[in-house]
Structure formats: structure tokens, C-alpha cells
Design a protein around this nucleic acid. Sequence first.
DNA 1: TGTACATCAGTGAACGCGCGTTCACTGATGTAC
DNA 2: TGTACATCAGTGAACGCGCGTTCACTGATGTAC
Lengths: 197, 197
Amino acid sequence: MRYEKGHRSATRQRIVEVAARRFRESGVAAVGLTGVMADAGLTNGAFYGHFESKEALVCDALCHALDEREADFVASGAAGADLESSLRGYLNAAHRDNPGIGCPSAALLPEIGRHADATRAAFTRHLVTFVDLIAGLLPAGEPAQAHATATALFGLVVGTLQLARAVSDPQLSDQILEAGIQAGLALGLGAPVDAPS
Amino acid sequence: MRYEKGHRSATRQRIVEVAARRFRESGVAAVGLTGVMADAGLTNGAFYGHFESKEALVCDALCHALDEREADFVASGAAGADLESSLRGYLNAAHRDNPGIGCPSAALLPEIGRHADATRAAFTRHLVTFVDLIAGLLPAGEPAQAHATATALFGLVVGTLQLARAVSDPQLSDQILEAGIQAGLALGLGAPVDAPS
DNA sequence: TGTACATCAGTGAACGCGCGTTCACTGATGTAC
DNA sequence: TGTACATCAGTGAACGCGCGTTCACTGATGTAC
């Protein structure tokens, strides 16, 4: 072997991980491929030996980040997590202050909506999985209603974390996080709402 | 007068309006000044006669879009709007499908968090105003609690609209909007939650 | 065992292009005398 | 009334730069005979 077995796939993986971090930190449009490759210890020319286009990397990096967070979610669930600890695990200062290793939806959601169909379809598949996982944290009830509530909870925490990142007043930012937690609890555990007729 | 009175400020206003639309459609980072100026019927060189930098335009365009939506909100409130009609006025297919004339937060929130302090401070001021307006739609109660709920409602609708735009399945997108409306009603009208201790 | 060739991940320069920004200039209209 | 000059919004070319993408080449290691 010219390179040890798995060298090529390890290189590719490294590029995906760097991209997943940098896209979340700066947004997809603001990140250049030369910088990503340099961070991965390579030169720009090697990129197209691994990916067809920047859009293909966007799709892979997004899926990688979503898979990682899904694994974290499942792992913490195995430790007996409930809705409140999940909310607090998401809406906290550390997550707010480290978008590069955080939720890709909070960092990139509007941008995802402007990307290629394949990228949006990949996001859609992951979203469905996430909603299932969130629904599992809710008190037993009608499954359709649990899914609707879980979907709204996802929207709530994503929007709330974005708000906490956008405001310039640190104290207000903390209040936003806490308001999101309380609202998430009210939504998830509160008086059940009728499913849409 | 070489130009009719108000010509200069009218030109500036035209640039701001074009930018506010294009930023929301494509994201700030993906929009170039040459294109904005061309849409406003001008050439690139005229830009710096009106703005100090692209960042200054971003701040002005964001404020313009936020002011416009605030005015709409107040106008519809004068017509006797309640929480449900406000939620339906936001979480609907027309809004989802026309980001260029829609909520700047839904289109740009993660990006705002990466912009200059002045831009984030301007956003923060507008957010506070919005939260007050939303709180006014809630049943009378403790003001601090109404503010917290209103903040979460804002996060909920922003995140939900972004989700509806990002997914590639139109039917799922419609379900997301409806789930957001139901959750917004539950949050706003449902069992009151204690304020954080 | 030694030589010629194949493989292939990665290099680094180059492509055309658009970016944000600068600046000398235009030209229509005003004022000064 | 006529001429010289001031004003200023807008023009359009140019600046250096980084973008996504392409491609001829390198060099280390494998295989063939």
C-alpha cells in the first residue's frame, strides 16, 4: 500500500469534521474551501479528489454534525434523561457560546433552506429522527399529538438559541435561555392540546 | 437644485429596501453590493456616497425590515388581532414561501449573531419592542412571566418558520406550521408557568 | 534479484469571476459678479 | 445678460483579494516479468 489502509477515508473524514465545525461557526457562504483544506492539513487541489463540489461537502458536513448530535442525544437518553435535562442540555451558555461544536440547526437553519434539494432532503430525514427522539421524552399520549408537540419543541429550542446568540446584552441572553426552558417544560408537560382537526 | 429636493435620501432609501429584500432571500454573505446597486438602478461606485461599508448597509437594511414588520404588527393589532390570528399571520404558506418580504429574524437570525456589535445591538432593541407587543396579546398576568412567555413565543415561531422552509417535503412543511400554531396557542393561553425563581 | 511500469493521494499553479472598496471624472444645475 | 466657478449625485474603471474549480505534475509504493 502506498498509504496505510483507510488513509483516504480518514482524510475525507477529517475534511468533513473541519467543515462541519467551520460552517457552524461562520456560516456556509462565508467559509472557503481553501481554508477548510488548510485546517485539515491539505492544499486546495486535493479537495476534488474527495468531493464533487462544495455543495456535496455541505451535505456531508451537515449530516455528520446531525449524526453526532443524534448519537449524543441517544447516549444521554440511555443515562435516563428527561425533558428538563434535555432542555437544559441544549439551552445553556456553553452551547450558546460554542456554535462550532453545537446544533447545526441553530447555526445554519435559514441557510439550509437555500441549499440544494439533496441537502434539504438529508436534513428532513434527520429532523424526522430527532422529532421521534423528542417525542419519546413526552408523557405518553396520542402519537400524532406527541409528534406535533415534539416538532414545535424543536422549533422552540432552535429559535431560542439563535435569539440568545443574536442579542448583544449578555443578561438578556441568559433570560432568553431560561424563558425557553420554562416554555419547553410548559409545552412538553403542560395541559394537552387537541390535535389539529 | 441639481436634483429635486429629497432625491438623495430617496436613493438611499431605495438601496436599503433592495438590500433588505435580497439579504432575506439569499442571506447577507451571499449578496454582493454590485447586485444591490444594479437592482436600485445605480452603479457600484455610488454605494459609498450613501454608506460607510457593507456592514452599515446590513444594519440599516435589518432595521428597515424590522421597522416595517413592527408597523404591520401594530396596524393589525389596531384591527383587533388576537394571539391566534397573529400566529396564523406568521406561520402560513405565503410567509414561508416569500422570505424576501417576510420576517428578517426567520431569514437571518444565525447570521445576525455573527455580525458587528452595532448590528446586534440594533436587533436587540427591536427584539425588546417585539416582545412587548407579543406580551400584549397574552392574557393579563404577571408582567415578568408575560415577557418570558412572549420571548419564548418569538423563538418558537422563528424556529418553526425556519424548519418549514428547510424541509424538502411540502406536506411535512405544512404540518410543521400547524404544529407551531397549536404550540403557540398552548404556550400563550395554556396553564400559566411559574416565573423562574 | 533487478528493472520497468502502474497506481493514486496529494501538490500547487492557474482559470475566470465576483467580492468590497477607492477614485478620478462627468454633467447637470446652482451661485457670484 | 453673460461668463466663470462651485456643488454634488452618480459613473465606471481599477485595486487587491479570495472564491470554486481544473489540471499537469510529483513521489512514494505497489506489481509484472
